[in-house]
Design a protein around this nucleic acid. Sequence first.
RNA 1: GGAGGGUUAGGCUAAUGGUAAGUCACUGGUCUUGAAAACCAGCGGGCGAAAGCCCUUGGGGGUUCGAGUCCCUCACCCUCCGCCA
Length: 428
Amino acid sequence: MLDIKFARENPEKVIKALEKRHYDISVFDEFLKNEKERKTILSAVENHRQKLNEISNKVGVGRKQGQDVSELLFKAKELSDTIKNQEAFLSEWEEKVKNALLIIPNIQHSTVPEGKTPDDNREVRRYGNLPQFAFTPRDHSEIGVSLGILDFERGSKIAGARFTLYKGLGALLERALINFMLDIHTRENKYTEVLPPFMVNRACMTGTGQLPKFEDDLFKIEGWDHFLIPTAEVPVTNIFRDEILKEGELPIYYTAYTPCFRKEAGSYGKDVKGLIRQHQFNKVELVKFTKPETSYDELEKLTSDAEKILQRLDLPYRVIELCAGDIGFSSAKTYDIEVWLPGQGKYREISSCSNFEDFQARRANIKYKPKDGGKPRFVHTLNGSGLAVGRTLVAILENFQQEDGSVIIPDALRPYMGGVERIVSGKR
RNA sequence: GGAGGGUUAGGCUAAUGGUAAGUCACUGGUCUUGAAAACCAGCGGGCGAAAGCCCUUGGGGGUUCGAGUCCCUCACCCUCCGCCA
């Protein structure tokens, strides 16, 4: 959520940011209109409240002194009714202002490239050499099925399209990746591991920006105002919702493994085959709470923390900087890490690392108290995938596939695989 | 699912229906060679140049001239019973 005061006082900056996003500017016009009306009504209400407070006090004092207060009571009653009518009107407009503000996206950082579509994203760097094959590399779903480690048909039988059953060494590989990632982030990158609830209440979803705008993308629990998390970002960022931290506690680094649940509304026909786009997938997430001054340095570090996983696994990737039109609703700046997938012959997103500045902190009300004793300020929140586990498994299958159909396990992962060096079949 | 208790500012706590008090922590100041102690001040939010005004007792609604306080309702937390990995 934007700062209401900033938005009111700097309309040109907000509009410029919306234009850079190629976003509908009318959402902001709506806000300005509502805000102006709200302030007019508010000052009228406040005037009347002041008068009523004065009269009410006189009633109290007068009663104690045994005076006749019936005339005061008559005036007060009249005023009280007027205020009630005005207040009803006021809360309508307050609601309108709030609703308008909640659907306005974040203002992007000045370094975010211009552009409208993913084609306009800027490549920042590449890592690793693309594998060369003496045969036509196969898609991960073919490899997985033929090795007997991925079962898409039975996944569908159990739960429907976009659900997958992992079996044998496939299930082990997924679990190994989770542990491998968590170990590196906790031991080397100094994140604290947390294991949060996989369901959250509405306040959490509003706090991180999924609601109110993206409710259609979420799985809601029937008969309860709870949702399945679409990413660990939601419960982990909300750990400190409505709290005031001490400056000395910052920065705070958290990492969490969770499954993620997404409806994938509007993705029909895209990535229907394989593990790329599922209703349920595993992810290890990185979340940071920082002071405003350091958040962009922390974004660079967070991105490289995620990259480290791919480097250890010898997977080639590139880092791209999302353009203003492609960046997420709540984000001020986002790097995507894309891993090379030989089966598709292209790079695919495996991590998205963002600085939200104070956009989420304001919605979730997460502050810190400065050492010098000033007023509490909003923290900056950041997060990134470190990494999407299913897609990492995809990358391993496709990059390390052999002509005989087997898959070599990267050295770094073998301790987590009980020493397995190569998957020849799903059986252990 | 059932019964009971609870929610006041950063923490803790008080308030016969009549200006939300106090305390701890924190910040600044006085004093001091420096610190501690002591003392003074500040310490929820909004508008305003300021004076000041308005709002704020978990959310929403009601009664009332006036609600932290009375009524209704919802949420969350705690204890116990039931069920349960």
